[in-house]
């Protein structure tokens, strides 16, 4: 079976501004979260995947096909864009009917399929109301409905949680979890990590157009353990502890604030620090009152990767 995405040294420039920078990865079919702050290059990458944008360098393949060369590829993809739906004077039913007909569905089967999809996204009751009278959440669901209406193999969503209230977010998450569990592929772009963590376990972290890291949450957490982190240790034997750590190769920086009992460390390999701390306390060197470090979640990794420099090196654990 052909992979879902193949990016080969993929780059796109908007004049002198970099949209996507030397992306090189192959991903099998599955559900992925594309995570990065606003302006990171998520929408640009989606534009390249859907063939809306042409790569400046490198190549992109979706299901083994060049999206700009294969007109039929779009029948296999459903796109829910980030842009607001501003159509006036039409109902969700009329609009979905149009979208399905553009996707090649015959007139005879449109009505039933539209009802089915409206039911699935919870818009059946409001199907005949004008879209411009909908709440933001309803419009998001309407956009999702057109993306899944033609039964695509890959669903791409760009910031689907934008503007949704907590109930709307929960409903959207439920729909996406259901989609991912159905075995179909998913690419979910978001700048809010914790929202996508509930939908999929596979991440691509992107910043400044570069892929900072990719892999499952577990793989990324292991990666986190190997990255320099700031850790604060509170102990009444601060000087003794500093002396013990001073010679360690994995200590990058150490700082003793003038007030309090804190020792602020920048550590290359946090696991070794924790081992050394346990050994030091066990040998009677002193007691540790508190350790404040990275919380070990993916958002920490992301912050670290971004702050460490913006993708000079991609930490790739998959593909």
């Amino acid at each position: 079976m052909e992979p879902l995405f193949e990016f080969e040294n993929l780059s796109l420039m908007y004049g002198t501004v970099i949209g996507v920078n030397d992306l090189h990865i192959t991903l099998p079919r599955g559900a992925y979260a594309l995570v990065g702050p606003n302006g990171a290059g998520k929408s640009t990458l989606i534009g390249l995947i859907t063939g809306a944008l042409r790569a400046s360098l490198g190549r992109v393949r979706v299901f083994g096909t060049d999206p700009r060369a294969s007109s039929g590829l779009m029948d296999r993809i459903g796109l829910c864009p980030a842009s607001e739906l501003l159509v006036h004077g039409v109902s969700a039913r009329q609009w979905l009917r149009l979208q399905l007909s553009l996707a090649g569905w015959r007139s005879g089967t449109l009505v039933d399929r539209v009802d089915e999809v409206l039911e699935r996204v919870g818009l059946r009751e409001a199907a005949d109301k004008a879209i411009h009278t909908y709440s933001l959440g309803m419009r998001q669901r309407c956009k999702l409905a057109q993306a899944i209406a033609h039964d695509p193999e890959l669903l791409i969503l760009d910031e689907p949680f934008n503007g949704l209230d907590p109930i709307g977010r929960a409903q959207m998450t439920e729909l996406l979890v259901e989609w991912a569990q159905s075995g179909k592929s998913l690419l979910l772009a978001s700048h809010v990590l914790h929202e996508v963590e509930r939908v999929t376990d596979s991440f691509m972290l992107i910043y400044g157009g570069r892929l900072l890291a990719s892999g499952t949450a577990g793989e990324l957490r292991r990666l986190l353990a190997d990255l320099p982190q700031d850790i604060v240790i509170e102990t009444s034997q601060r000087d003794e502890l500093a002396k013990m750590l001073a010679g360690k190769s994995w200590i990058r920086a150490m700082h003793r604030p003038a007030v309090g009992n804190e020792l602020v460390l920048t550590v290359d390999r946090p696991l070794e620090l924790y081992e050394a701390l346990a050994h030091w306390a066990g040998q009677g060197g002193g007691s540790v009152d508190r350790v404040v470090g990275s919380d070990g979640d993916i958002s920490t990794l992301f912050r670290l990767l971004v702050s460490r420099h913006r993708g000079e090196r991609a930490y790739q654990t998959k593909g």
Partner: peptide
């Protein structure tokens, strides 16, 4: 483009021509 509806025609096979 103004109503941000063009993107939906863009991602349909032949959608732009039909519209």
């Amino acid at each position: 483009i103004e109503s941000q509806a063009w993107v939906y025609a863009l991602v349909r096979c032949g959608g732009r021509r039909s519209v």
